[in-house]
């Protein structure tokens, strides 16, 4: 393990942590979702980095021959298709989560008048105290 062989992973980890930090540390809900988006894209990057084969091409067969007789050249080095497939799914899951999260943010804004976490918590507490008495 050296810098030359593993630096891709390390940069990707740094990117992941940039996103995760935004999610945890920021109080603005929209910002949290932006962080989540960066976090998820970086995880996708991790998988894609793992799927890369040195000198490999995209996992689409290089064909030899014409028309119906064409056969793929299996001596060409291809990258691993599996991480790509898995990450197509992950991208979809990401956008689905994002859409739902943003819809919730809109409703929170409408009912609380704010999208900042600390204000929402404060309003909830005030409401709870008024119900208690």
């Amino acid at each position: 393990m050296t810098l030359a062989t593993h630096w891709h992973y390390w940069v990707v980890i740094a990117l992941m942590m940039t996103g995760l930090h935004i999610v945890i540390a920021r109080r603005n809900y929209v910002k949290k979702l932006m962080g989540l988006s960066i976090f998820q894209v970086s995880v996708i990057m991790l998988y894609v980095t793992m799927g890369k084969v040195a000198g490999g091409t995209a996992p689409v067969y290089v064909m030899e021959g014409e028309g119906h007789d064409a056969v793929p050249n299996l001596d060409v080095v291809y990258s691993n298709p599996v991480p790509h497939v898995l990450m197509l799914t992950a991208i979809v899951v990401g956008i689905a989560t994002m859409a739902l999260g943003l819809a919730l943010v809109v409703r929170i804004k409408e009912s609380y008048g704010t999208v900042e976490d600390d204000v929402v918590i404060e309003k909830d507490r005030a409401e709870e105290e008024s119900l208690e008495s």
């Binding site: 976090f39 998820q40 999260g101 909830d124």
Partner: peptide, 20 residues
């Protein structure tokens, strides 16, 4: 209640971190 929204959002953030 309006709290359902913030509870769901909270769950979404933590749940997505968990899922990821």
């Amino acid at each position: 209640r309006r709290r359902a929204f913030s509870a769901a959002f909270n769950y979404l953030i933590l749940g997505t971190i968990g899922g990821t």
